[in-house]
Amino acid sequence: MNIYVLIKRTFDTEEKIVVSGGKIQEDGAEFIINPYDEYAIEEAIQVRDAHGGEVTVLTMGGEDAEKQLRTALAMGADKAVLINIEDDLDELDQFTAAQLLADYLKDKNPDLILAGNVAIDGGSGQVGPRVADLLEINYVTTITKLEINGSQVNIVRDVEGDSEMIETSLPLLVTAQQGLNEPRYPSLPGIMKAKKKPLEEVELDDLDIDEDDVVAKTETLEIYLPPKKEAGRVLQGDLSNQVQELVQLLRTEAKVI
């Protein structure tokens, strides 16, 4: 089976966000594979181990993203591809990202593409379904279970807490929801092997796409931090009085009840 995983390099969830000059400061920040993409990588490896084939991890960005690709290879992916746009594109939105990824994938005949259901930085959740639409293949988002029998696929999908049992077929793109699996940590032999696995770098010129086709449709004007929340009031006194006071405050001061 020809399996692709779309991954994104993101800030570590424990990082505080620092903004200066309307932009996010990246200096000194820790970067990780977007946590939802880790589920996608893990699932891809399990599908390959059960059904044979090859797992290719694909990302887009600058050379820094090689680190996350190597981590995916160390987990057990077979090949990695970086679409390096560092020198070519200043502005990028989900439209652009999907155009580039789909263009790279269009002659690769993937049977299964996996991605995270959302990236924890931009949080748009658009790129997976957009890529599927451009490739004219079906997609199922926020999956928590995947079973493949031949070309038939059974999926459990999380829909706001409810579970949908879905039947569909390959080729297919799925996006991973928490609960799909437990992503493995790269093992030491895995890390050693990953160094020798192929990591291909592709530039915009290598793709069959005009720069006009990847001009972003949206533009971020400004990034800012929410007003810092002041620590409020810790109530005092007898516990039952505190509870009564709290209910009063919620009614009369906060007016939320």
Partner: peptide
């Protein structure tokens, strides 16, 4: 963005 750690203003 970043699940509410920051916000962005976007125009089409």
């Amino acid at each position: 963005i970043f699940s509410g750690k920051a916000f962005e203003k976007v125009k089409v």
